[in-house]
Design a protein around this nucleic acid. Structure first.
Lengths: 266, 266
DNA sequence: CGATCCGTTGACATCGGTCAACGGACGTGG
DNA sequence: CCACGTCCGTTGACCGATGTCAACGGATCG
């Protein structure tokens, strides 16, 4: 049973799967559909019908503002799952669309029910995957809110390296990343012009190579340092975090949040 | 059975609760603990132990960067629940702390299990609440990535109006909001100086009143228009969304994402 | 062979950040 | 009760990062 399907790789890394569960997943994933680039998979305002898995290519969650600006909310790479909660969501608050040509597997609601109800290992793995996606969204909030542009880009590139590597689509420091600079801009809250210049700056610093279509990271450690990147949020593994100070530093010590044991009140 | 407890109000609005479930919740929530302002409830890197509910005051999820900058990821208001997934999260990737003095109810893991396993209505409501929180995070991504500062503030103020109103803590257009301009800045990716000026600009436009400690929205509709605010993401109700265009407008029509039926492949 | 779309570059504008100062509110300790 | 320290809101002057506008060339595709 070859384990190189991205979904299997990803889920198995999150929670142990029984042999049977692997077979079930392999069957679910057997018949992908090809979707051209720049095609909506789910539209904003839709009522979702079932779920799907990205098997090849890169897609994204996104929103369009009134003035037409687009914000990319998350990248979806092979192995990523959309629609875990389709059963309780009555209206999508964002869209999902392909950025490159993709292969996608559709999962009808009944299949979904079966996966969740009869295969606890799969259910658990999918839940953890959803938590990792939420953690990624938090990282992006930090990225957009508090990091200068060059660092934002570096962070996204680091994240994609780790995520693609975890499904076997990147080597130690290199991967194909056939996105437009416009796509990158919409993910990082920048302008495509400025993405271009910031990318050049990263190249000039010797941190990356490649002309956008594929990325080579010259010095992974250095890029992660620049980006303040900690891959911990992508796995669900223990790791060490810096002290959680309450206020920005530089302020007198009194500003730090105190700790609370939250004495149980029941 | 008075329904004015924020948690009950909130959950009952999301999913119908049986009388018994209301009683169970009322009991869970019976003994809140007072926590001073600026105190961590959960630290970044912690292993979460159980969950808790904010019953009074305002708290937040946040992260501290290497350079000490803080990004607020979400506000937590009375009725908000933290730690639904404590059973599968081994390490917190962010902290949770109070911004004002709060009352909080601690929920030990066993109580949690009981709620989720034996009270489907509660389980469902909590799940929907978690989805609403995720939707809010997406709104914030849009806010940080694509909106100018004044609009960001307006959006946050609109959001808080709706959220506080839904738990009975705001009138039609007015609520107490005892946050620091620094807190607001850390939530909107701005500087406190600029928050100050932007707030003044909103006041000058006649959109809001009040000196920060409490907010009066002069013209709710106008503020929502400025903010491009659609409250749909906070409830889980049907609503209409603008067309989901793929590319920014102004570009030739060809750029729009096509739609896909995703022909089921099983 | 023409349309597009994308990456690239330059000149320029501006939003929002930085730095610094000050006053008021509040709390604390003498 | 007063004096002091701290934190917060406010303002001004200044600056820099990033957006805007515009142009151009190469690649791709029909």
């Amino acid at each position: 049973m070859p384990d190189h399907h991205p979904l299997l790789r990803k889920l198995a890394a999150l929670s142990p799967l029984s042999v049977e569960e692997r077979h079930v997943l392999a069957r679910v994933v057997a018949h992908p559909v090809a979707i051209p680039a720049r095609t909506d998979l789910v539209r904003d305002g839709d009522q979702p019908r079932g779920a799907f898995i990205v098997v090849e290519g890169i897609a994204c969650r996104y929103k369009i503002l009134l003035d037409g600006a687009r914000q990319v909310l998350a990248f979806l790479v092979p192995g990523d799952f959309v629609g875990l909660d389709a059963d309780v969501v009555d209206t999508m608050d964002h869209a999902v669309g392909t950025l490159t040509p993709c292969c996608v597997v559709d999962i009808p609601p009944l299949t979904m029910r079966n996966l969740l109800d009869n295969h606890p290992g799969i259910a658990r793995a999918l839940r953890i995957a959803a938590l990792a996606e939420a953690a990624t969204a938090r990282q992006w909030l930090v990225n957009l809110g508090r990091r200068p542009c060059e660092q934002r880009l570096a962070h996204v590139l680091c994240e994609m390296l780790v995520r693609l590597r975890s499904v076997g689509l990147a080597s130690a420091a290199e991967y194909r990343f056939p996105l437009t600079q416009i796509d990158l801009a919409d993910a990082t809250g920048m302008t495509s012009v400025h993405v271009n210049r910031s990318l050049q700056a990263l190249r000039a610093r010797g941190l990356i190579e490649g002309q956008g279509r594929s990325i080579v990271i010259r010095d992974v450690a250095a890029l992660e340092a620049v980006a303040d990147f900690d891959p911990g949020y992508l796995r669900q593994a223990a790791r060490l975090q810096p002290e959680s100070l309450a206020r920005r530093p530089g302020l007198p010590a009194g500003g730090a949040f105190r700790e609370t044991g939250l004495p149980a009140a029941t």
